[in-house]
Design a binder for these strands. Structure first.
Lengths: 111, 111
DNA sequence: CGGTGTATTCGGTGTTGCTAAGTACCGGTA
DNA sequence: TACCGGTACTTAGCAACACCGAATACACCG
């Protein structure tokens, strides 16, 4: 989607992944595929894996190694209590941002 | 506002400033003060100036040096045609992101 | 045995916002 | 005069994040 999207994803992508994991446990490959389906056409594979490693190191998710029928074992991530708290904060920050931008958009349309 | 906000601002702050400039010309100090009023409490002064330099170098804004009664001359920025185009793209990307996240938020609330 | 699809890892790059310090100009005050 | 606070901009170095490209590993199929 271009340069703007790349920069806007910073910080947001983390929230997106946490939000996905709040509905169900998932592994990297699966998440990447799902995001592509949702229109995040050019999210790099490596980006998701790196992100997953980060949130694991911060203790926001639990990990389970599950054998796959069709490849190497999967690392299945699930959101834990701390992750849920963090996700709450994310939504608050997101709400603040969207409010400000909604105001700006309306103001800009008038001018 | 913390780490999350910092990361989420990346890419978004640029759009915010362009949106401000689409309503009226402004200079750095003024923009910083306005943002603080709007609740962006800890946006660093240097951040805005650096951003303004970037968008100027990309040719999105025009600059005029205007003497001030109370200090060194102001650099007043105004959005030009290219900047307006770029801002349009920004809004599109932003709309895409908000759509996805709105869906995720609803899904997450159910689970 | 080589190729395709699944699944993860790693090193290096560019962009961005933050920190912190410095420069410059002006008015008021001691 | 000398100093301080408010205005206004600049700069150098840092940390975090998404991207790119390549590599690794496993399973099945022709």
């Amino acid at each position: 989607m271009g340069r703007q999207a790349t920069e806007m994803l910073k910080g947001t992508l983390e929230g997106i992944v946490l939000a996905i994991l709040s509905t169900r446990a998932a592994y990297g490959y699966e998440i990447t595929a799902w995001l592509r389906e949702q229109g995040f056409s050019d999210i790099a594979e490596g980006t998701i894996y790196a992100l997953l490693v980060r949130i694991e190191q911060r203790g926001l998710v639990d990990v389970a190694k599950v054998p796959s029928e069709k490849g190497p074992p999967r690392k299945v991530y699930s959101l834990n209590a701390q992750g849920r708290e963090y996700l709450e904060e994310f939504w608050k920050t997101w709400a603040f941002l969207t409010e400000r931008l909604e105001q700006l958009r309306q103001g800009g349309d008038q001018a």
